[in-house]
Design a protein around this nucleic acid. Structure first.
Lengths: 151, 151
DNA sequence: TTGCTCCTCACGTCACGTGAGGTGGC
DNA sequence: TTGCTCCTCACGTCACGTGAGGTGGC
């Protein structure tokens, strides 16, 4: 499973956490719940070592967690579905029937569109809030202008 | 403190939670940590009763919690600062020196601008993600088109 | 009276934070 | 050898979820 060529560039957990904007504890926890590989063949007590790809994955996880506001379970399901599709894409690149390939692609499309809907909704809500805050700011500015003109 | 005219429209905790899109447990917890008034003169074991204003406040709390991604402690500080300014505004409407009123307004402006920065940042990040998802969708659609043309 | 929702503990859970005591690599 | 970061428990915390056992209002 997850046969990973050992990356040339090796980071320890602290640096990985730093680069991804989080803490070592979070990295260990994500390994514990299966969000990060945990490259199994590590002896008990030995240091965890990571490559650039791990940093990227962690960054992406944190990004989606924060922006989509999903639980780690949902996040796991999301990225696992993504990976399953990536595997299928590679396996059946030329092989398999056109019908099957259509099914896979259209399933992927459904997932992407669902995510887009969440993102669009969040943007809309934030823009609404932004509008309200801008109006507030405008009122405060005009009040301040009046106050300084009154001197 | 928080002398509130008893509202004519009275909801029980379940309905308040429903209208705000949350649960009774959350309402009780917010009362416990001081995010919601808890209209003190309730006898032990008696039902909590709320008005339309409470529903609005709860909605706003949940909205800010979800959109800004702040802790409940930060949220509390945020709304308390807001309320303190509202009180000042009412107290010193005509009274007090123009200098003091300028100070209050300009402090409020600083807070609003800080919030606007957070909101803008989040929108920018979400738009970045939206762009990436749109590109993915475009690729998937064109692949599907090719697949159906190949039949 | 029968349901329903409410009440107050109080323990469980998720996503980590924070030491405690010990080992490993520049 | 001296620091520093790492390791593994394991308990603490924040923001609630979830019963347990009981009371209150249409």
């Amino acid at each position: 499973m997850t046969t990973r060529t050992q990356p040339s560039q090796r980071f320890r957990i602290g640096e990985v956490a730093n680069r991804a904007g989080t803490t070592p504890r979070t990295v260990r926890y994500y390994e514990e719940i299966g969000l990060l590989p945990g490259h199994g063949q590590r002896e008990h007590g030995k240091h965890r070592l990571y490559g650039e790809a791990d940093v990227e994955r962690l960054r992406e996880l944190i990004r989606l967690r924060d922006l989509l506001g999903v639980s780690l379970d949902e996040l796991k399901a999301l990225v696992e579905a993504e990976e399953a599709r990536a595997v299928l894409r590679r396996q059946w690149q030329e092989a398999d029937s056109a019908k099957e390939r259509r099914r896979i692609s259209s399933e992927a499309l459904t997932h992407v569109e669902a995510q887009l809907e969440i993102v669009r909704g969040r943007i809309a809500e934030l823009e609404q809030l932004q509008g309200e805050l801008s109006a507030k700011r405008r009122r405060l500015r005009s009040r301040l202008r009046e106050l300084s003109e009154a001197t």
